[in-house]
Amino acid sequence: MNRNGFSDTGSTTLEVNDLHKSFDDLEVLKGVSMRAHEGDVVTMIGASGSGKSTFLRCINLLELPTSGEIKLKGEAVEFKNLKSGVLPSNKKQVQRFRSQLGMVFQSFNLWQHMTVMQNVIEGPVQVLGLSRAEATARAESILNRVGLWEKRDDYPAFMSGGQQQRAAIARALAMEPSVMLFDEPTSALDPELVGEVLKVIQSLAEEGRTMIMVTHEMKFARDVSTEVIYLHEGKIEEQGPPKQVFENPASDRCRKFVQAVH
């Protein structure tokens, strides 16, 4: 299987083709394509404003792309064309897609009126229709795994950033998503709390979860990724296995970027 090429192997979990996104006159994404096979960890790197977070947010339609194609397990998001761009035409489909794309935000975004446990079972109960007992059993094993079992009845406001982010990862995991999306998961954390979150993400990568991650943690990207994409001004400038992108990039700009951040 060619992980980085575009040959169709049939096991493509997530596929994005020629994605464009404009905010008014500003074109943020100028035709970005990517593919993630089962178990791939694709990391997007690039300077602020390169469009990497916007790209991630377009995948689960928190931002609406101006044009392009998004396919999850071979099923494309249904769009209808408008003058100003595209609009998803099947709301139920969008909700189903989102439930299969586990999003982890930079600022955690835990629901502050719910305990950790309530945060984690909310999606499975409300969206997937699990019984409270099933969802709780599922949540218990996940919370154990991210080391928050003791904190399950705490409210997010009383937890550290690292704990909140681990809880947010648990919330996403509880949906048993096909793909995890990480939007700069450690950027809002105090330096000493970054490690505990990266450890959890690494363990997810090691168990073969499909993940798309936007990050500034270059060493981490190098260690866990199967593929690294360097975005510059809304275009893919460099793409390949971490070894190639970090050690021997074809693009000068990419070389400078990874050297500067290192």
């Binding site: 689960n60 928190l62 709301k91 909700q95 189903r96 897609f97 989102r98 439930s99 299969q100 794309l101 999003m103 935000f105 975004n109 835990l110 629901w111 909310e122 999606g123 409300q126 969206v127 947010a168 919330r171 996403a172 949906m175």
Partner: peptide
């Protein structure tokens, strides 16, 4: 956003 992202209507 987190609520929408998890698939809520």
């Amino acid at each position: 956003e987190a609520a929408r992202a998890i698939g809520m209507s």
